[in-house]
Design a protein around this nucleic acid. Structure first.
Length: 110
DNA sequence: GTGTTGACGCCTA
DNA sequence: ATAGGCGCCAACA
């Protein structure tokens, strides 16, 4: 089969971000900017957020991806749900903010 | 090819 | 602390 048609070939950046998200261990969280940087596009936090919103891949712990400064960000319209999921992971969320954020922030391989 | 949007990030007032 | 603006990149109309 030739490549006659190109069915939404995912960019390296997209695959990279999704891969990183799937690598986030339980009890830890990563920020959009962090994922973008690890994916090879520092500053592309928006692109990362868009990937979550559109959800090219399912089954990934998108709820472990939060905004910077310890803010949750959003979750399809129910950030409370995101907070609940994070709390269930062992984190502590207070008024839409992750307390031990600097403690549970996933650093990949530090 | 252009314009707009989006689960962001950081700065300044 | 709150508000507003600019910049970044990728997908969609």
């Amino acid at each position: 089969m030739t490549k006659g048609s190109k069915p939404q070939a995912p960019s390296e950046f997209t695959k990279r971000v999704l891969q990183l998200v799937s690598r986030i261990p339980v009890g830890q969280v990563a920020t959009y900017g962090d994922l973008a940087e690890k994916a090879g596009r520092p500053g592309a936090a928006r692109a990362v957020g868009r990937l979550m919103a559109t959800g090219s891949r399912r089954g990934l712990p998108y709820h472990r991806v939060v905004a910077a400064s310890g803010r949750l960000g959003g979750y399809g319209g129910s950030e409370a749900l995101k907070a609940g999921l994070l709390a269930a992971e062992g984190l502590t969320v207070r008024r839409g903010r992750i307390l031990d954020f600097g403690r549970c922030r996933w650093r990949g391989q530090s």
